[in-house]
C-alpha cells in the first residue's frame, strides 16, 4: 500500500471527501430540479437552487479517456499508474485511477466498477477496476 496526496477540502467539497472516508461515493443532487452535478459546488447551474442532497453513486461506469503519466516520478505513485475519466451511469464524469488491469487491456468505453480504497496516510479515494458485464439475456 502507499500514501496519496491529501485532497484540499472546502465548505463546498467536504461532504464528498467525508463520504469517501465513510466508504460512500456521493453525488450532489439539486433539490430544486433534481439535476446531478460534479465536481461539488454550491449552486445548481440549471435552476440556481442552493439546496441539494448527496446521493450514493451506483458505481458502474465506462472509461471515457485514460493516460499513464510517466514523468516526473512522484513518491505517491508507482510507475505506470493509470489516470482515467470515468462516465458513471448516472451521467456524471469523475477523475480516478484504473486498477487491476494491464494498460494494454484498457479500452475507451470499457465497463468499470468503483471501489473505495483507504491509503496508508488515511486518505480514502474512489478507484475503478474492470467490470464484467452480464452476458446478453442474463441481466
Amino acid at each position: 500500500m502507499s500514501d496519496r496526496p491529501a485532497p484540499t477540502t472546502t465548505l463546498d467539497t467536504k461532504f464528498f471527501w467525508d463520504g469517501l472516508a465513510a466508504d460512500r461515493l456521493l453525488i450532489q443532487r439539486c433539490s430544486g430540479c433534481a439535476a446531478l452535478r460534479h465536481p461539488p459546488r454550491p449552486m445548481c447551474p440549471h435552476c440556481n437552487s442552493l439546496a441539494w442532497q448527496p446521493i450514493e453513486a451506483c458505481g458502474r461506469g465506462y472509461v471515457h479517456s485514460f493516460v499513464q503519466p510517466r514523468h516526473p516520478a512522484w513518491p505517491w505513485f508507482e510507475d505506470g499508474y493509470i489516470v482515467a475519466l470515468i462516465d458513471l451511469e448516472e451521467g456524471i464524469r469523475l477523475v480516478s485511477n484504473l486498477c487491476g488491469v494491464a494498460p494494454a487491456e484498457v479500452t475507451i468505453g470499457m465497463p468499470v466498477e468503483a471501489f473505495i480504497e483507504r491509503f496508508d496516510n488515511g486518505v480514502s479515494l474512489h478507484q475503478f477496476r474492470p467490470r464484467r458485464e452480464p452476458a446478453a439475456g442474463t441481466r
Binding site: 496519496r4 496526496p5 491529501a6 485532497p7 484540499t8 467539497t13 465536481p39 503519466p69 512522484w74 505517491w76 505513485f77 499508474y81 489516470v83 477523475v95 480516478s96 485511477n97 486518505v123 479515494l125
Partner: peptide, 9 residues
C-alpha cells in the same frame, strides 16, 4: 483539488 490525489499533477 480534485485531480491531485489521483496522480494528475
Amino acid at each position: 483539488d480534485v485531480v491531485a490525489p489521483f496522480g494528475l499533477l
